[in-house]
């Protein structure tokens, strides 16, 4: 197993190197020239060239990538030929000339927001989704099942930008449950848990609704499928009570695949929940990257957020695979 994990880790590193390299090539293909963007009105070719040199874009794409990788480990100086040298320590993800800050600093400020939003939403959707799914499966065809089916339908068909706007409308503007001025303020959940709850509960809930609906459906159908397995009949033939059968035999098998999906969903959101962050003006990774793409074309930020997002997915894939082996002995000992 250890051998397997170390090999997978090696593959992961290679994969991430390739992903980062392709990110550099992709953005090189986009017909926007950052050197020209930051050029003032009286722009001359020489000025653009100077800009290009300052931004570090005057070398080959591969060289740019290689400098980036080195910077990750050693830190790096930016703004060559400029007025002053700018240094970002390791791990350096680049320097945003637009924000006049090291990308790592910008991201370090944004990441806790995204992380706490994702964790909050994750806990919500898992608990709501799984319990509703169990309830629906146990009361199949009854009112509770129908009600949860309605929730699933609404939850999966309403896009987040609609639910989000409705939440803002009703909760903030109509019922004044949250002070609109507090909306989007970062609160450290460890030092100020109530404050965090006030600003983050509704964004988390908004983000969680669609996921909770999907997980409800998934849990329900898995339980129903497992309930008709032969080994559940065996459990019943042993004389076990329905409660024990559900808790020990059905749920164990029905929830195992959720580990995979939940892990990947979680990792996907860590890269930034663009819409939710936007609606509730949370300055997380999602808002950071969308701003960098649409407003400022801040290449270092774009590269860094894309890379961080894909790293989460790739690493989580590995974690999920290993976790699954511990859950399912067939995978572990086959």
């Amino acid at each position: 197993m250890l051998k397997y994990i170390s090999r997978r880790l090696l593959y992961t590193v290679i994969l991430l190197l390739l992903v980062s390299l392709s990110i550099f090539y992709i953005f090189d293909l986009i017909p926007v020239d950052p050197a020209r963007l930051i050029c003032s009105k009286q722009c001359t070719t020489a000025l653009v060239e100077a800009n290009r040199h300052r931004l570090g874009l005057d070398v080959s794409v591969f060289e740019q990538w290689w400098r980036f990788i080195q910077g990750l480990f050693h830190g790096r100086n930016y703004g060559e030929g400029g007025i002053k040298d700018i240094y970002c320590g390791a791990p350096s993800f680049g320097y945003s000339f637009n924000r006049h800050a090291c990308v790592s600093t910008v991201m370090a400020a944004a990441f806790p927001i995204t992380l706490s939003l994702t964790i909050g939403a994750f806990v919500l959707w898992l608990s709501v989704g799984i319990s509703l799914g169990i309830l629906a499966a146990r009361k199949k065809g009854k009112f509770a099942d129908r009600a949860s089916t309605a929730f699933v339908l609404i939850g999966t068909s309403l896009p987040t930008f609609i639910t989000g706007i409705m939440v803002v409308l009703f909760i903030v503007l109509k019922f004044h449950l949250v002070n609109p001025l507090e909306l989007g303020n970062w609160q450290n959940p460890f030092t100020n848990p109530l404050g965090w709850l006030r600003t983050f509960f509704f964004p988390c809930a908004t983000l969680a609704i669609a996921y909770a609906a999907t997980y409800t459906r998934f849990t329900r159908s898995n339980i129903l499928e497992i309930s008709s397995e032969d080994y559940i009949r065996t459990a019943r033939a042993k004389g076990l009570s329905e409660k024990v059968i559900l808790r020990k035999h059905t749920l164990r098998a029905a929830l195992a695949p959720i580990v995979t999906i939940a892990g990947l969903d979680f990792a996907g959101l860590l890269g930034g929940a663009i819409i939710t962050e936007g609606i509730f003006s949370l300055s997380g990774l999602g808002r950071l990257s969308i701003k960098a793409v649409t407003q400022t074309y801040d290449l270092p930020i774009i590269v860094a957020t894309t890379l961080v997002g894909s790293t989460f997915v790739v690493v989580m894939n590995l974690i999920v695979d290993v976790a699954y082996a511990y859950i399912d002995p067939r995978v572990r000992t086959a």
């Binding site: 032969d230 080994y231 009949r233 065996t234 033939a237 004389g239 164990r252 195992a256 399912d328 002995p329």
Partner: peptide
Amino acid sequence: GKVMSMIFQDPMSSLHPY
């Protein structure tokens, strides 16, 4: 399971895999 017990056709699917 105490007075009456039953065994089934497919012993693979009749045992819990986990």
